[in-house]
Simulated scan of single mutants.
Amino acid sequence: MSPITTTIIITSLATGTVITSTSYHWLMAWIGLEMNTLSIIPIISKRHHPRATEAATKYFLTQAAASALILFSSTINAWKSGTWDITQMTDTTSNILLTSALAMKLGMAPMHFWLPEVLQGSTMKTALIITTWQKLAPMALMTLTANNLSMTTLILMGILSAMVGGWGGLNQTQTRKLMAYSSIAHLGWMATISTMMTNIMVLNLFMYLAMTTSMFFMLILSKSNTIQDTATAWTTSPTTTLMMMLTLLSLGGLPPLTGFIPKWLILEELTMQNMTPTATILALSSLLSLYFYLRIAYTTTLTTSPNTTPTKHKWRFKPTPTTTPLTLALPLSLFMLPITPLILS
């Protein structure tokens, strides 16, 4: 792909997200979402491979259906209330439709089937964009409409997503699919808290973006497409393998790492709202996710792969990739727990 084409596509991708995040009119929000979707289709299908084409098709169909649902729900609301304002969603039917559409956009259960397949058909860098940047526009809409969305639907979807994200990841050996199920589980936590405390949801989103970005950059750096590949990651960079283990534990939500903050705050808020069964299910489902994070951490740092040659390095020489984004994302994904009071204030 030529530099000019790449620049246009990346700019359109960014512009679409910004338009959706900053608009208060449903048509403008829909236009932003469409720009966003149409920009990432060539990025997914750039690798001329049947899997990439299949992934691009699945992504397009899912996102187009979700965008149509958003337009349909906003039209019904405008018909009933006479306003296209995003914050004035008063019709119950529109709210349930909008909740379902946003869940489909994000890849929450039970509309999650496309996410692991699309990530598996994409390159690591494209998978990084889909799991981080592509979540911003729907989450912005969820934040704007949080007071009006169907609370029961969101909590049920949140619980289901957390459970599916845990169970689905147990049977996987591909790191991209594992990160997809990790994304589904984290979105479940965000959806559960979204109608009660929007600021905790935004904090959770920020933490998730930092942890997922650093994890993907380390997988790209060590060229680890499967769990078996992570066993030889130490030959690329011993420091990276240690950081990978800590990031995985942070994704699992273990103290004293950053990933503990959102889970701690969400469980605290749910128990204060007398939703102890929901909090219990979420906490138990996070144990499932923690299991497959620990599995990667174990193969990465606690096993030594069989060495048939005297050399300690991978046989193929690679150009040294840039690690600036990784150095920015890693401290955020590991060391932010001590400043939790500062974040909350």
Rank of each mutant, 00 (worst) to 15 (best):
T6A: 10
T7I: 05
T7H: 13
T7P: 04
T7C: 07
I8Q: 03
I8A: 05
I10A: 11
S12N: 08
S12G: 08
L13A: 08
L13W: 05
L13N: 04
A14E: 09
T15V: 13
T15G: 06
G16I: 00
G16R: 01
T17P: 04
V18W: 00
V18Q: 00
T20K: 03
S21R: 00
S21V: 03
S23N: 06
S23Q: 04
S23V: 07
Y24L: 11
H25L: 14
W26N: 00
L27P: 01
L27A: 15
L27D: 13
L27H: 12
L27C: 13
L27M: 13
L27V: 14
M28N: 07
W30D: 02
W30H: 06
W30V: 08
W30E: 01
L33P: 01
L33H: 02
E34R: 01
E34H: 00
M35A: 08
N36P: 05
T37P: 01
T37I: 06
L38N: 06
S39L: 02
I40E: 02
I41W: 00
I43C: 13
I43S: 04
I43L: 15
I44C: 06
S45T: 09
S45H: 12
S45F: 04
R47T: 14
R47Q: 12
R47N: 10
R47L: 08
R47M: 13
R47A: 12
H48A: 09
H48K: 13
H48I: 08
H49G: 08
H49V: 12
P50E: 09
R51N: 10
A52N: 12
T53Q: 15
T53W: 14
T53A: 12
E54M: 08
A55F: 04
T57R: 15
T57I: 15
T57M: 13
T57Y: 07
K58V: 05
Y59E: 05
L61D: 15
T62Y: 04
T62H: 05
Q63P: 06
A64S: 11
A64M: 15
A65R: 10
A66R: 01
A66E: 03
A68T: 15
A68F: 06
A68K: 08
A68N: 11
I70D: 01
L71N: 03
L71Q: 07
F72N: 03
F72T: 10
S73W: 07
S73I: 09
S74V: 06
S74P: 01
S74H: 04
T75H: 07
I76G: 03
N77M: 14
N77V: 09
A78R: 09
A78Q: 10
A78S: 15
W79E: 15
W79N: 14
K80D: 07
K80A: 14
K80H: 11
S81M: 13
